[in-house]
């Protein structure tokens, strides 16, 4: 399908600890945005020593134009699932970029302009499945990205996972989306210009924000 909005190099960096499923998260999201939404997407990852116990990272560049440099140059959205990742990649953000952190593990946040949810806690307490943490993040990011549609992300998730774990992951996706909408209210205003124009066939849950919302993060639930 053809995307209905224009994006010029939207850069997401998903980072965390090796084993948190950061790269799977990037793959599912990249596939959904590329094949489902029709954007050009370049997804790259950092391997090597830093993937073992240290910081693990995957970059997504999303654009309606051909993508030149495939890695993140100036990050629009940094998702930091661990303290180390947050410290390491925070300096690579654009001045007005959005930081989404896993408040269970990131206790010292370098700014008070951030969005946060206790993803690890949510996955253990409410799903009893720590491995689904990355899918809760996917739900939250889906809510935050004005150009992402939940139905298409879900489809990509369903296609990418083994049948027996699809149900719990769809549940995790919906939980992430719901909790993000409760906690954050609206997608960040900074991206309003890119917000999707509703074409009337589904996916109406995310309307264009009418006015910028405060970027001050709410307290974690």
């Amino acid at each position: 399908m053809k995307p209905d909005i224009q994006i010029d190099r939207f850069e997401i960096c998903l980072s965390g600890l090796g084993g948190q499923g950061v790269i799977t998260l990037g793959k599912v999201m990249g596939k959904a945005l590329a094949l489902g939404h029709g954007f050009n997407v370049a997804q790259t990852q950092s391997y090597g020593p830093e993937a073992r116990g240290g910081a693990s990272r995957t970059d997504l560049v999303i654009s309606t134009r051909p993508i030149s440099y495939p890695k993140t140059d100036k990050i629009d959205l940094l998702v930091a699932l661990s303290q180390e990742a947050c410290n390491k990649y925070y300096p690579l953000m654009k001045p007005q970029a959005v930081l989404l952190v896993n408040t269970t593990l990131v206790k010292q946040i370098p700014t008070n302009q951030y969005l946060g949810l206790p993803f690890t806690e949510m996955s253990i307490d409410r799903l009893g499945l720590p491995q689904a943490m990355n899918t809760i993040v996917l739900g939250a990011v889906t809510f935050l990205l004005p150009f992402a549609r939940r139905s298409l992300i879900r489809k990509s998730l369903e296609e990418s996972l083994p049948a027996k774990i699809v149900d719990v992951n769809v549940k995790a996706l919906n939980m992430g989306y719901r909790e993000a909408s409760k906690a954050f209210g609206q997608p960040p205003a900074i991206w309003a210009a890119m917000t999707v124009a509703d074409n009337g066939n589904g996916d109406t849950e995310k309307a264009a924000p009418k006015k910028p919302t405060a970027k001050k993060a709410p307290k974690a639930p």
Binding site: A34, V41, A42, Q43, T44, Y47, P70
Partner: peptide, 9 residues
Amino acid sequence: EVTAHTREK
């Protein structure tokens, strides 16, 4: 390595 390990549409 970058070219081989980049995912794109």
